[in-house]
Design a protein around this nucleic acid. Structure first.
Lengths: 229, 229
DNA sequence: TAGATTGTTAATCGATTAACAATC
DNA sequence: TAGATTGTTAATCGATTAACAATC
């Protein structure tokens, strides 16, 4: 028992950010493998699937201890369980969604939170037209009830899907409430060090711009092909 | 005239991915500076604002040629214009959104596309309840009209906001239509090399997992503080 | 001109890949 | 056992930072 813990390699927390950012992708591919009934996989086969090197996979996984077995590969279910553990899936984190507009609704209706073991406790909004309604499994509360609600529930994450202009006010309230995690879709960048919380600032538009950059590159190279050569 | 093009440094396209991924962030901060009426900024001041090193900023910008001036810094408007040019803002790219659910609606109603100079030509869906309706400035068309529509309009980007299960079918149709860019929110990963298009696979959930990882780390360290030491 | 700040080279750091011994 | 495949070390590669000469 606890054989895998022989040496836990590093003191928790000093795993490189590059590795951490890849973990959710492993999580996704492992889910898919399980869904397809796969029981074992080698770093070589997974590397082909994911378009990365086998070396990187082994290196990544070994940051957290030896999850595989020489000559055999990795047990898909076991590896998935380990990745989940590392990523805090199953910790039962609770979230509230602040802003019940299109994005807020889209998020709570998607299976995303459930898949990752995060519970939506409720949405909050100022608009009387949505207060009291239910989206997904979650009810919309009046924004003014946020403080009372947080006193009566353990809230780990605040998901911000309200307009940029509301950020100064809501930040202040979140800090006062001491909510440990902020998932920020507002477009303004919340500085983690200023809040004392863990913050993820999401900028969907950045991905669109990267796409446009590539598109333009493509255009340029096609133009060049057309003109000379 | 064209002074900045004295040497264009690299042949277009060999700029490191790490730099490219940072450009949208410069874009956002420069917009903000312009909004605040700033006319010039030094790499030093921008570095404080953005929480990166001044060295990195100068290095990044110099991948595309000298946009600054010794002893002065960078002209905010000029720099913004240059970044826009590099990122293809103003190319007038046209997009269609495929899937008029919550996410599709949220995207077309947001100012994101407009800010980046991307025009939404329309949405497509199979649901009679939304076909014919208008969200943002864009009308929802019947999914079956996609081919005809694309023949009559220049479509640079297809934004995929439909269920995962629809991806095989829609991929095939997009490939047939030869749409050069795919912005994929479905959760399944579309392989660019298989489509011949430029593809951005967006996985919002990955960011949630990173947040949960950090939250768990925080919990663990707080536990430890509690027990020993 | 003197001061400021860039552009750019060289040094450092971190991340990826290759290779192979350990071992199932 | 022989074959396969990991865990892990060492080599390579790329990205970041520091430093400073060029120059506005």
């Amino acid at each position: 028992m606890e054989k895998e813990n022989k040496r836990s390699k590093r003191s928790v927390g000093d795993v490189s950010p590059a590795v951490i950012k890849r973990l959710p992708r492993y999580f996704r591919y492992l889910r898919e493998l399980i869904r397809n009934g796969r029981l074992r996989i080698s770093s070589g086969e997974l590397s082909e699937l994911m378009n990365v090197t086998a070396s990187q996979i082994r290196q990544d996984l070994n940051c957290f201890g030896g999850f595989g077995q020489q000559g055999y590969g990795y047990n898909v279910n076991y590896l998935y369980a380990k990745i989940c553990e590392i990523l805090g899936v199953g910790e039962g984190f609770n979230a509230v969604v602040i802003g019940a507009g299109n994005l807020g609704k889209a998020l709570v209706r998607s299976p995303m939170f459930e898949k990752r073991g995060v519970n939506i406790l409720g949405l909050f909004d100022v608009d009387p037209a949505v207060i009291g309604r239910t989206f997904g499994d979650a009810k919309v509360y009046d924004m003014s009830e946020l403080e009372t609600f947080c006193e009566n529930h353990t809230v780990d994450v605040a998901v911000l899907t309200l307009p940029k202009s509301c950020v100064p006010e809501i930040s202040e309230r979140l800090v006062a409430l001491n909510i440990p995690g902020i998932w920020n879709f507002t477009g303004s960048e919340i500085d983690a060090s200023a809040t004392g919380a863990v913050v993820e600032n999401v900028h969907i538009g950045d991905s669109l711009m990267t796409l446009c950059y590539e598109l333009r590159l493509k255009e340029l190279s096609e133009e060049r092909e057309g003109t000379d050569a």
